[in-house]
Amino acid sequence: MPPPEHWTAFSTCDPDAAAHFLQTAYATGHRLSLPSPPAPGGGPVVAPAQHRAGPLQVAEALVDPQVVSVIDPSDTITVNVIRAGVLETRIADATSRHGAGDVLIGVGPRLARRHLSQHLAVHTLSLPAALIAAAAGRPAEDTERPWDFTSTTPLNAHASMLWRTTSAYIATMLRMPPQALGPLLIGNLARLAASTLLTAFPTTLGGEARAAPYDRTDATPPVLRRAIAFIDANPHRDIALADIAAAAHASPRALQYAFRRHLDTTPTAYLRRVRLEAAHRDLHAGTPATTTVTEIALRWGFASPSRLAAEHRAAYRTLPSQVLRDGH
């Protein structure tokens, strides 16, 4: 399938030009070389097509016939899904070999790696290391403690399938025209990628979100009121649990206790409810001639019209299309 028009395509037989493109695209050091000169009239050495949406970047690349790449550690983590060909990876003294269907960390936060690719077709998804740490429960201000993956491959076959399925879904969503993807949906996709990565790959980030003794005592009505006021004022923004907790002057765990204790729900569930109410108001205010259910769904962070329809019907006992058509 060809890349969408809004993706950036690039093709070159020059290793230096390819390295410059990759270094610019991925904000990390890439040094490329060829084990042997390319054949006269041969195809491109590197031919990636990539697209960035918020903190996420997806790419489909062809690397042919053989390319050696040395990649520095980076604050941007890249996960590879090999479509075809072979990728041999060396980190320190350990060498591993990967083929079609395999999943591995292509760029990590701490160790440089050397890749030897042979007739490689690869799908990549990149996201900030800070987003992964936040998904594990590490406070945003805690930037000093290093972390890394304890394996460059998923935990098991099920974890590998989980990553392949999730990254394919995210890539499909990012094939949509940029104007259709609002910041709420992009933020949701980024957090989905981070949480799936933590589920699929072993890291040293385990146990970051342990409850502190004061979390339960901090789950007070004033904390809840501050959180609700922040959510009610900012449903249009890409906000996460950490943002709500900061506005409420509480830890994320204390905030979760407060919502569970006083409202029998969670902060993120309350945020989804507020966004559903906003979507419901937009459906009332719109007409089929001026807007669509899809536009309203994406505007308020719903991944599809069917997702909005399911939640809207559960809450209001009617479909979004009926409200848009009839105004009630």
Rank of each mutant, 00 (worst) to 15 (best):
P4D: 03
S11R: 14
A17C: 01
A18N: 07
A19I: 01
L22Y: 01
T24G: 10
L32R: 03
P38A: 06
P40V: 05
G41N: 01
G43L: 07
A47E: 13
A49G: 01
Q50I: 07
G54E: 05
P55S: 11
L56H: 04
V58D: 00
A61W: 06
V63W: 12
P65F: 06
Q66K: 10
S69R: 10
I82L: 13
R83F: 00
V86C: 10
T89I: 12
A94D: 13
R97A: 01
R97G: 00
G99Q: 02
D102S: 10
I105K: 02
A112C: 12
R114N: 06
H115W: 12
L116W: 05
L125I: 15
A130Q: 14
A130W: 03
R138P: 01
P139I: 06
D142L: 07
R145I: 12
P146S: 05
S151L: 08
T152R: 15
P154I: 04
A159C: 11
S160F: 01
T172M: 14
R175Y: 04
P177F: 07
P177Q: 09
P178L: 03
Q179W: 09
I186P: 03
N188V: 07
S195N: 11
T196L: 02
T199K: 14
T204F: 08
G206S: 13
G207Q: 06
E208N: 11
E208K: 13
A209K: 05
Y214K: 14
R216W: 14
D218W: 11
P221K: 00
A227P: 05
I228W: 00
H236N: 15
I239V: 09
L241D: 06
A245C: 08
A246G: 07
A246C: 06
H249W: 09
A250C: 08
R253A: 13
R253N: 15
L263P: 05
L263I: 00
T265L: 07
T266Y: 08
A269T: 14
A269G: 08
V274M: 10
V274S: 06
R275K: 07
L276A: 01
A279I: 05
D282H: 11
D282Q: 10
A285S: 11
A289I: 10
T292V: 08
R299V: 08
W300A: 02
G301Q: 08
R317Y: 09
T318G: 00
P320Q: 04
S321I: 10
R325G: 04
